[in-house]
Amino acid sequence: MDKFQNIENITFTIAFILYMVSAITHLFLVTKLAKKVEPIAILTALAGLVLHTAAMVARTAGANRLPFSNQYEFALSFAWGIVLSFLILYRIYRFGAIGAFVMPLAILVMGYASLQSKAVRPLMPALQSHWLTFHVGTAILSYGAFALACGISIIYLIDAKRTGDHRILKDPEVSDMLTYRVIVFGLLMLTVVIISGAIWAQKAWSRYWAWDPKETWSLITWIIYAIYLHLRLRRNWRGKSAAWFSIIGFISVLFTFVGVNILLPSIHSYAT
């Protein structure tokens, strides 16, 4: 095992542990068992992200390319995107409680990554393109945003049954608007993912669209979120229904990422 792989393994493991500590601390925060733990929850998430970044840098150095080309590498980057999105949102709006629902998602994706083969494989000819970085990079941002929206929607559904100080976020209107804001960003990024994939496919395989299961499920996810936005903007569709729609959208994201690879034969099968 080379030194980069050693560094990657160590930093990955510590980041994973720190994320777990952060998620547990966040749970204490939202269940009001301990009220002053927010700084610990955020700092452990931040420290985890720093080590997670180190793991990705080590992977990049060891493989001589960005870690974007198989299920392990994409899951590693996806979890990174989730935590980064959460911390950016925290920096802007200071809603630490969201971490109680977002950090477990990051842990879930990290756990999935740890089950995949970590072997560094050379890029197959179709993946040797500058479009890989752009296509997968935007997918990480998009999926990260949708995970965040899912977490905030769960908060909305819990808060809808509570009143006053018992709520996780004081104003459910805020979580509703934040979900919208984050989905808007995720959908724009998903559009870039689909379009960059189409342009790349045209260059590599002569067809911008081939109804491959991965691209088709990306389109289905796009349609789900497009319907969400239309209902919201034109029909003022808010509240519980919008929150459920956001969660369904994220299930579609997860199926596009994991389910398609496991269940459906695809030209994206190298992403295993």
Binding site: T216, W217, L219, I220, I223, I227, L231, R234, V260, L264
Partner: peptide, 21 residues
């Protein structure tokens, strides 16, 4: 109408889901 658009988009989505399965 938006109603027609949503119905059509949902049918298209269902159709392409079947196509992948």
């Amino acid at each position: 109408s938006l109603k027609v658009a949503i119905v059509l988009l949902s049918l298209i989505a269902i159709y392409i889901v079947i196509g992948t399965l």
